[in-house]
């Protein structure tokens, strides 16, 4: 494992639950690994394969999508669609062994600041272990 490896992780967070959860983690001063950059979206259902694949192919070592728990969507059912879109993409990555573990979906509610920190840290750790994305250096994209 490359000790100096600092992964680049893109985190798509829904505005209502997960972003609020992240804020809570912040105000509780929970420590997180500095590898994740947050991209706020209004709802996790805004995140589709176009955004995720683009992130990967442009060199993201990991992509985390976080939204409200199923049933809690601020827009009632967005996250159900998000889940399906995610399941599809994950399956494609699995089918092709494209390191599906680099893609993660987590439900983080507004009260789950601690969970947010845990999810991010665990994911960052996992990605650090897996190492840099092969797409980072791929010249033939």
């Amino acid at each position: 494992m490359d000790k100096d490896f600092k992964p680049n992780i893109v985190g798509f967070l829904c505005n209502w639950c997960s972003y609020a959860g992240a804020d809570l983690a912040g105000s509780n001063k929970l420590e997180i690994k500095p590898f994740l950059s947050v991209v706020k979206v209004m709802c996790s259902s805004r995140v589709n394969s176009n955004l995720v694949l683009t992130s990967f192919l442009w060199g993201a070592d990991g992509v985390l999508i976080a939204g409200c728990h199923p049933g809690d969507c601020h827009y009632e059912k967005g996250n159900y669609y998000a889940r399906r879109r995610f399941a599809l993409l994950k399956k494609i990555m699995e089918s092709l062994n494209l390191e599906p573990q680099r893609l993660q979906l987590s439900w983080v509610s507004a009260s789950e600041g601690k969970r947010y920190a845990e999810v991010v840290n665990k994911f960052a750790e996992d990605i650090t272990k897996i190492g840099p994305s092969p797409f980072r250096k791929n010249q033939n994209l």
């Binding site: 979206v41 209004m42 709802c43 259902s45 805004r46 995140v47 589709n48 176009n50 601020h74 827009y75 967005g78 669609y81 998000a82 879109r85």
Partner: peptide
């Protein structure tokens, strides 16, 4: 309401939010 679920669902990017 601006959630963007439709945008996520459109394969051709014909909707923008």
């Amino acid at each position: 309401r601006g959630c963007g679920s439709c945008v996520g669902s459109c394969p051709s990017g014909a909707i923008k939010i």
